[in-house]
Amino acid sequence: MFKRIMAPVDLAHVERLGPALDCAADLAKHYGVPVVYVGVTSSLPSQLAHNPEEFGQKLAAFAEAEAARHGVETSAHTAIAHDPTTEVDDALMRAIDETGADLVVMASHVPNVMDYIWPSNGGKLAEHAKCSVMVVRS
């Protein structure tokens, strides 16, 4: 049914992604397809990495760890945004095309009043992406 699953991850808050990551891996196992983990970073130093290359290495290490944990095929893809606060959605939309994923599995918080003003990234992606999007509440 699906060929490739994209799982956006925020490496700074991996602890909040548990259910979504498990779900992505289970689906990958079920359909026998690979998961590509997508991380969004700016080219500026962040708490995770000094530069995008280092960020990419960390993301790749994360993907390998997930592969070992779940026994599925994984890869990593770094998306660069100039202003991550507001451009995460656009960066993820581009990543869907670049990775050729046809299912996105991502975590999202339980909606609150602010989602009327600033929809969550998951909500935005589900609204605009051409492929299927599964939003896992955490």
Partner: peptide, 20 residues
């Protein structure tokens, strides 16, 4: 698992620049 990867000090890329 996840914690290991995020907290590990991964060496900087080679030759690109001088990281402090």
């Amino acid at each position: 698992m996840a914690d290991e990867t995020t907290n590990q000090g991964i060496p900087a890329p080679e030759g690109a620049s001088h990281i402090i």
